Amino acid sequence: MIRTSTAWRALAAVGVAALLSACAPASYLVKTPAPSGLKGTGQAPADTTITVVDLRKGAERDFSTGILPAGLRTDQGPIQAPVFLAETLQAELASRGINAKVKTGETGQPALSLQSFRMLNHRSNGFSPFVTFTYLSADIDTPSGKKRVTSFVKRGKVPVWSFEEVIEPTMNQPLSLAVKELASKIAAQAYGWKASDAEVQRLLDKLTSDKLAGDAYLDVYALGFSNSPKAVDRIVELTRHGDEYVRLAAISSVGTLGATGQMGMLKTLYERRDGVWADRAMALKSIGDLGTPDSRAYLEVELKRWETGDSSKEAIWTAQIIRLYL
């Protein structure tokens, strides 16, 4: 009887794995992010070279992990995180008028010390969305000392006909957003860059309607990447939007914009245990982005609580976000 029971469990495990995979390929060909071309003010000193120093350790060095093993590659081959980041970051900064060379190396000033850059995938069953969490965390040397710059993006898509359908929304777009967010924070922290008033108004005009759907969330992120205080009011309004990804982009952008006056609102969103986890997670991410002593202390308390609590997926995923900042 024991052997039979064990055999059935083994067969069940194989069946679940097959259902989750649902013909998933062993690797995915992803696009190199297209630069945003946001116009703004702020410039790096002449002959500036940013050196990406890879300080990732242990599991952080595995770029693509999760319930479905799947490597990520570009036309040049498997993604090498520091090289991929250096090339795409340089292109994004240049498109904003910041002409800094970005290279990989062991030493250099200013340095971008890479702590985390990876994509975690998850799927509950063969009928649920394929979800990715993209994490990026680094320290950048600035005139006022080292500053933590981060990104966290959550996306999901149910593959209907094939797994090729998930590449754009759950891989290409998050990688592009992660690079753009990092570039925005580096541009602001190191070079005082912000988008021009005309650029901010152009984005605001695209987001005037409350009937936003489809890829409108990309415009919400772009508004957050403007580093402009003029974007804050509309971003805060959109944190209550009915479309999930518009709402998540807005919640994330509150912190990206450094809207410290919204700390109370973000705490309320995060502490609503009846809300969806993604909203709470993005609010916590945004609290980290505020970068104040109060926000850091709040994260320290929350990390201790999650690490000493249960071992649920929520606990693991939430703690991973907090560690991007501590």
Results as ranks from 00 to 15, higher is better:
3 R>T: 15
5 S>G: 09
5 S>L: 15
8 W>N: 06
8 W>L: 15
10 A>L: 13
12 A>D: 13
13 A>R: 15
15 G>N: 03
15 G>Q: 04
21 S>P: 05
22 A>W: 11
25 P>I: 14
28 Y>Q: 09
31 K>N: 12
32 T>S: 07
35 P>H: 07
39 K>F: 02
43 Q>T: 13
48 T>A: 04
50 I>P: 01
51 T>A: 10
52 V>G: 02
52 V>Y: 01
52 V>E: 00
53 V>R: 04
53 V>A: 03
55 L>Q: 11
57 K>C: 02
57 K>Y: 03
61 R>A: 10
62 D>W: 01
68 L>I: 14
68 L>W: 01
72 L>Y: 00
77 G>P: 08
78 P>A: 12
78 P>E: 06
80 Q>M: 06
83 V>F: 01
87 E>A: 09
88 T>W: 04
92 E>Q: 11
96 R>S: 10
96 R>G: 04
97 G>H: 05
98 I>Y: 00
98 I>T: 03
100 A>H: 03
101 K>L: 11
102 V>Q: 04
105 G>I: 10
105 G>Q: 03
106 E>M: 15
109 Q>K: 15
114 L>Y: 03
115 Q>C: 04
120 L>H: 10
120 L>G: 01
121 N>E: 14
127 F>V: 15
129 P>S: 15
133 F>Q: 07
141 D>K: 06
141 D>I: 06
141 D>W: 02
142 T>E: 00
143 P>D: 11
145 G>C: 12
152 F>D: 05
152 F>M: 13
152 F>R: 08
153 V>N: 02
157 K>P: 05
162 S>Y: 09
167 I>D: 04
168 E>Q: 11
170 T>Q: 04
171 M>K: 07
172 N>C: 08
174 P>Q: 14
176 S>I: 11
179 V>L: 07
184 S>Y: 04
184 S>A: 15
185 K>N: 02
185 K>S: 05
188 A>E: 04
195 A>K: 05
195 A>W: 09
195 A>L: 12
197 D>G: 06
199 E>D: 09
207 L>R: 06
217 Y>S: 07
219 D>Q: 09
222 A>L: 15
222 A>P: 02
223 L>F: 10
223 L>C: 08
228 S>E: 12
234 R>V: 08
241 H>F: 12
243 D>N: 15
249 A>L: 10
253 S>L: 07
254 V>E: 02
255 G>W: 06
257 L>Q: 02
261 G>I: 08
266 L>R: 08
266 L>Y: 07
266 L>P: 06
271 E>G: 09
272 R>M: 09
272 R>W: 03
274 D>H: 08
280 R>V: 05
280 R>Y: 00
281 A>V: 14
282 M>L: 15
282 M>W: 04
286 S>Q: 05
287 I>K: 08
288 G>K: 06
288 G>E: 07
289 D>G: 01
291 G>H: 03
293 P>V: 14
294 D>Y: 09
296 R>G: 02
301 V>H: 03
301 V>N: 03
303 L>H: 02
304 K>I: 03
305 R>D: 06
306 W>H: 04
307 E>L: 13
313 K>Y: 02
314 E>M: 10
320 Q>T: 05
324 L>F: 06
325 Y>E: 03
